[in-house]
Simulated scan of single mutants.
Amino acid sequence: MKFDGFETLAIHAGQEPDAGTGAVVVPIYQTSTYAQDGVGGLRQGYEYSRTGNPTRAALEECLAALEDGVRGLAFASGMAAEDTLLRTVLSPGDHIVIPGDAYGGTFRLVSKVFERWGVSWDAVDQSDNDAVRAAIRPQTKVVWTETPTNPLLNITDIEAVAQIAHDAGALHVVDNTFASPYLQRPLTLGADVVVHSTTKYLGGHSDVVGGALVTSDAELGERLAFHQNTMGAVAGPFDSWLTLRGAKTLGVRMDRHSANAEKVVAALEGHPAVSHVYYPGLDSHPGHKVAERQMRSFGGMVSFSLRDGEKAALKMCERTQVFTLGESLGGVESLIEHPGRMTHASTAGSPLEVSADLVRISVGIESGDDLVADLLQALES
């Protein structure tokens, strides 16, 4: 009998009890090298841990199952995963389309590294299919999507944009970090590759840095694996083990993140100090219908603008007591940040520059009532 419920896969995919001891948790294979069965003879496929490690292999199999892909690859960070992917599929003279409010690290990688390598790029509002189509050039090899985007929570119709990319002979890549595979599976909607910062929701406990690629294309998976080994920015065995541990509870955590976010949004909407709330679960959000169709629920990320501008935003970030001022997201603890001066500072002076009145929060799994109370007291003048 085949079991394919998400929560079951998260706990069991790639994680059979250890054959030697019966241990139900994958061991940490903290080793760099492996004894060989003769010259050139691998023992169970392993020779050197940059090329392959049993703990990392378990994580990669689990990630592929969670995203309904055929190949998963684990990296030392989300940016290492992005860099490896782009160096695999792009060459000088190629063109990439990125979101108009892309994550600052992605923007920096494309504009400061790949542009110097001869890759051109355009940033467009990918909630507008016509804008994506208009940005395509003969040289376009990748359409890079975030949905929801970071930090404005814009929504892209994955199925539609995948078709636009494929009609142009380009790959469609989706950064699924904000949604996680529990809330959204881009590969099932037509995307070619999914990217994750596993530091965030997949790890879930703010104690590990990692990244991942998952693809539904076996041949592309082989090319990515070649570059993963060649470039070497792989996830270590302990980091892989921590990420596997986090993935086991992803489903129940995402349910709580989403439920708490809805409480927070209800409190922020209509508050006199708040001029706008960005959250795809709101009926007023322009991408709500698309998000409702392609997501299980709307996630734990919320952004909002303050009427009194940057000064009020900075003050609020300093006043919270349960929300910790920090530059990450997706952990069990709630975080607050000022994107313009923190995660998206690299976009200053560019078309992707973030408004100074914007605050971004990662809603954790604490008491929802406590989170609401903390934000309300921090908004008091």
Rank of each mutant, 00 (worst) to 15 (best):
A123Q: 02
P17L: 03
L224Q: 03
G72A: 01
S355T: 15
Y278G: 09
Q139W: 07
A235T: 09
W117E: 15
S77Q: 01
L375S: 04
G299C: 08
T347L: 05
E16P: 02
R185T: 14
C62Q: 12
E318S: 05
A81W: 03
A102E: 07
G287K: 07
S197P: 03
R307I: 13
G78L: 01
K263F: 00
D83C: 06
V265R: 04
T31K: 09
G349E: 07
L90F: 06
F114E: 02
P181N: 06
E327M: 12
L306E: 01
D83W: 10
G105I: 01
T324L: 13
A225M: 09
D68R: 14
D130Q: 14
G169H: 07
M79S: 14
G105H: 07
P99Q: 04
A212W: 05
E67C: 11
T243K: 01
V363F: 08
T31C: 08
V214M: 02
A160W: 04
G40C: 02
D207Q: 01
P339G: 09
Q163H: 12
F3L: 10
V195M: 09
G190R: 08
T198F: 00
F178T: 13
S197A: 15
L86S: 04
A165C: 08
I98V: 13
F323L: 06
S334G: 07
S328Q: 12
V124C: 04
A168I: 05
G309E: 12
G270I: 07
Q139L: 09
G105Y: 09
V252T: 08
S91H: 15
Y29L: 11
A179W: 03
A179K: 04
V119W: 05
T199M: 00
L153A: 15
